[in-house]
Amino acid sequence: MVKKKKSRSKKADLTIHFMPYSEIAHEDTIHRIKKIMGIVLANRIIILQGKLRPEEETRLIENSMTLIGNIKGFQGIEIATVSNEEDTHSLFNRIRHNIARILIGEQDAITIIGPATVVKEMKQDPKKIELMLNKR
């Protein structure tokens, strides 16, 4: 009997993890960061509905810096966010935006986070994010 040759490539697959906001909505900062770092360290790219708070972004950077040199091959992260840049200059829109944020959280944005070993660069502008991947 002839053995079937496995056709699976030796190259690792690229995995994208879609994360709805509900997955982190009720988590505190520590657990949010822990969840995100767990996925990033598994070499996956996260597409998060919504965005992190500014202090959570800095915590994520701090956490990444602590891990560089302590986890083999880890070089940090790439992160980019695009928000719904509505006119928040008028008072009415600002109030409406703030009420919506309190009620449903920062859902009107998309955040992409990936390990720097997988994502070479993220080019962003207010409307789009371009993802450049490293050769695998």
């Binding site: 708070r53 500014p54 202090e55 972004e57 800095t58 950077i61 992160i79 962003q124 502008d125 207010p126």
Partner: peptide
Amino acid sequence: YSQVNITILGNLAA
């Protein structure tokens, strides 16, 4: 438009 600039300014605003 780098996330570092956005994050720094966001933290200062907060």
